[in-house]
């Protein structure tokens, strides 16, 4: 592999509350996330899962409680959004270089960009414009941009939500491979329970601003969907999400 492992960093939250004005979005959040863990965060729309993610990588501040994440002090936290948010007027390589920050250019930067592009499977596409790439490839560039500065904490906010089903499966494998190679701590918000189980060491279910389920996923990787163990875990999460309403489960 072209890129060296960077390692992960821990995140801990103690009795964290987040409110926007009088609107309490999250409360009583206690979480210990060890370095290098892959955490999937699921929940219904508006449950507060994206807010939790933004708190953990410092895009929002907590209203009360304690958040401790060494990656934030070291500026080693990065985020990938659902939309790739690439600069359309910059080449793939220049987009990745944005991730290196101010004043980083020259041969060392080029080398870093080339290495990370190889890691995400985009070797040889350095000079293309984003408009010349498919949706999945654009998201790979966004991933490379987030990873080029060797973060120890990576937040993924529904990173595959805008992709078609086949590209998603492809990208899930890529994401897992990159995470295994580099070893960063991954926090992924998703609305796809299957994806959460396939990738997470642990699945956290948020409902009405609270953690209602914290489920370890102890299956060997790469995981096969459709095995009884996989289905049992999925079922457990869906039960908690929808209670005993069979129609809602069916719809999901």
């Amino acid at each position: 592999m072209s890129s060296q492992p960077t390692g992960g960093s821990r995140v801990s939250l103690k009795d964290v509350k987040k409110a926007f004005g009088s609107n309490v979005v999250l409360q009583g959040i206690d979480l210990e996330i060890p370095a290098g863990q892959f955490v999937s965060i699921v929940g219904k729309s508006g449950c507060g899962k994206s807010t939790l993610l933004r708190l953990m990588i410092g895009l929002d501040s907590v209203t009360s409680g304690a958040l401790d994440a060494p990656a934030l002090k070291e500026q080693a936290a990065r985020i990938v959004f659902q939309e790739p948010r690439l600069l359309p007027w910059a080449s793939v390589k220049d987009n990745v270089a944005v991730g290196l920050g101010e004043g980083q250019s020259g041969q060392a930067a080029d080398k870093q960009a080339a290495e990370i592009l190889e890691e995400v499977g985009l070797k040889g596409r350095e000079g293309l414009w984003p408009s010349q790439l498919s949706g999945g490839m654009r998201q790979r560039v966004a991933l490379a941009r987030a990873l080029v500065s060797q973060p120890t904490l990576l937040a993924l906010d529904e990173p595959l939500g805008a992709l078609d089903a086949l590209t998603r499966i492809d990208m899930q494998a890529l994401l897992e491979g990159v995470w295994q190679d580099l070893g960063f701590t991954a926090l992924m918000v998703t609305h796809d329970v299957g994806e959460a189980v396939a990738l997470g060491d642990r699945v956290i279910l948020i409902d009405h601003g609270q953690v209602v389920l914290d489920l370890p996923v102890d299956l060997p990787r790469p995981r096969k969907r459709g095995t009884p163990e996989f289905a049992a875990l999925e079922g457990q999460i869906l039960d908690k999400l929808f209670g005993d309403d069979p129609r809602a489960r069916e719809a999901h």
Binding site: Q75, F81, R85, L87, V98, G99, E102
Partner: peptide, 21 residues
């Protein structure tokens, strides 16, 4: 505005944000 937010997250100062975004 999503690109501007992206630029801010990646630590671009005002000058770089203006020139690059």
């Amino acid at each position: 505005p999503q690109l501007i937010e992206m630029g801010r997250i990646y630590g671009m100062n005002n000058r770089t944000l203006f020139l690059k975004v």
